Simulated assay, not measured.
Amino acid sequence: MTNITTLRPGEHFMFKNFEWVCLDPNHPDGGLLAIMAKPWAKDVKFCPSDKFADLKGNWNNYRTSNVRGVLSDMNNAVFGGTCLLAHTVDLVADNGDRNYGTVQDFIFILTCDEYRKYREFIGRYDSWVWTATPWFCGYEDSDTGCGAAMVRSADIGGRFGCVGACLNGAVAPACILNPESLNLRQSMAFVEEISE
């Protein structure tokens, strides 16, 4: 058995019956940052409502998004335990607005800044994928117009675009694997939990 931090950026491995790509074996959060090699879901609406008026200007807020809810369900159904470490997702908007703050999740989608940093290791998906980055932030007490309904996405060529939060997009989950509770079977590049 080998420590998972021996994986190299760009290296593929299997974990929980999914294929992952190592992005950073020594992430500042204390573990190995990885992203699924293929989108986990392809038709996920970012905004949890078809009625924008229901959300009062927060249509593109990852904190309250349908995408985050789907990833939370995935975490509860598939992962659990101590195999993942929490990661702070910075919800700063494309224009620098920090109104949405940050959230901490075990399963998450990359922000635009993270996508840029690890772009060379992320494969090209066959559909565009959501990022956690809003075009600009909406506000609870006002309707800020269509800009607050736009989310940054990465297309099949790895280029950024803005997509309406009411549309369906693909979700490429990322996570921080905990090297204290996971080992690597080097011969199979298969990550597994350490038996007690």
Rank of each mutant, 00 (worst) to 15 (best):
D73P: 00
D94F: 13
Q104F: 05
G164F: 04
N58R: 13
Y125K: 10
V70L: 01
Q186F: 08
A149F: 03
G96W: 05
T111P: 06
D105C: 08
A93D: 06
G80Q: 12
T82A: 15
G101P: 09
P48T: 06
L33E: 00
C166G: 12
W135V: 15
A148Y: 00
A154E: 02
L184A: 04
V103N: 04
I176N: 01
P179N: 10
T131L: 02
V129S: 06
I194A: 10
M150R: 12
S187F: 02
K51H: 10
F136W: 09
A41M: 11
M188Q: 13
V163T: 08
F160K: 02
G164R: 06
A37P: 01
S65Q: 00
A37S: 14
N58F: 06
N178V: 03
C146K: 12
M1Y: 11
F190Q: 09
T131D: 03
M36K: 06
F18L: 10
Y115Q: 08
E180C: 13
G31V: 11
T88S: 12
R98M: 10
A41F: 08
P48A: 10
G57P: 06
F46C: 00
C22M: 08
C112S: 14
M150D: 04
C47Q: 12
A77C: 10
E114P: 04
N3D: 10
W130T: 00
M150T: 09
I107D: 01
C175F: 04
D24I: 00
S195G: 05
D24F: 04
S195Q: 11
W135A: 13
V151W: 05
R63K: 15
F13D: 02
N95Y: 05
I35G: 01
R116V: 09
N168R: 10
V92Y: 12
N168S: 14
L182R: 03
G145N: 11
L91Y: 01
P179W: 07
V78E: 14
L110G: 06
A77K: 11
N61Q: 12
I156D: 05
D141V: 03
A172Y: 04
Q186K: 13
G31W: 03
D54N: 12
F108G: 02
F106H: 14
R185K: 09
L71H: 00
K38L: 03
N66M: 11
F46I: 00
C166N: 13
E114Y: 08
D97E: 13
N3W: 07
L177W: 01
D105P: 02
V171N: 05
G81T: 04
N99I: 06
P9A: 05
K56G: 13
N183K: 10
N66H: 12
A170D: 00
L33V: 00
Q104I: 05
A174H: 07
A148S: 15
L110K: 04
G31E: 05
D105M: 03
A165D: 03
C112F: 03
T82L: 12
V191W: 00
A149H: 03
L7C: 08
G147R: 03
I4H: 04
P48C: 05
W59N: 15
P28M: 06
N66S: 11
P134R: 09
D126Y: 02
N95D: 15
M150G: 14
A34L: 07
